[in-house]
Amino acid sequence: MSEDGHDTSYVKVWMVLVGLLIVSIVGPMFEIQAVTLVTAFGVAVVKAFLVAKYFMHLTVQPRFVVYIVCGCLAMMVVFWAGVAPDVYKWEGVNWKKEHVIQEPAGDSHSDLLGDPADRHDRPRT
C-alpha cells in the first residue's frame, strides 16, 4: 500500500469510529434496554477493537505482547471473581452482613453499598 494509502486507511478507521460514536449516542435514546446494551456497550467493544487493531497495531505485535495484555485482562477477571461473591451474596461468604440481612427485602442493597445521601441511620447489631 502506498504511503498515502496508509493515511487514507487510518482516516477511514477514524470515520468508522466516529460513526460508531454516533450510534452509541443515538441508540440509547430509544430507551430500550437491549438496544442500549448493544449500541452503548457492544459498540464500545467494537470501537476498542478497532483502536487496538489499527491504531495500536496490536495484531502485528509479537504474540507475547498479546499474552501480556490478555494476562492483565485475566487478572482483572480474577479480581472480580474474588470480590463479586461477597458483593452480591448478601448473607455473606466469609462473614455475615447481619445489618443487611435484618433489613426489609429491597432496601438492603442501597443500605450496604448505597449513597450516603440516600442512606438512613440505622442501628447496626
Binding site: M76, A84, V87, Y88, H109, S110, L113, D115, D118
Partner: peptide, 12 residues
C-alpha cells in the same frame, strides 16, 4: 468492574 458491580446493585 467495581463500578459495574455497584451499578448493577443500584438501579437508582
Amino acid at each position: 468492574v467495581a463500578y459495574i458491580m455497584y451499578r448493577l446493585s443500584h438501579p437508582e
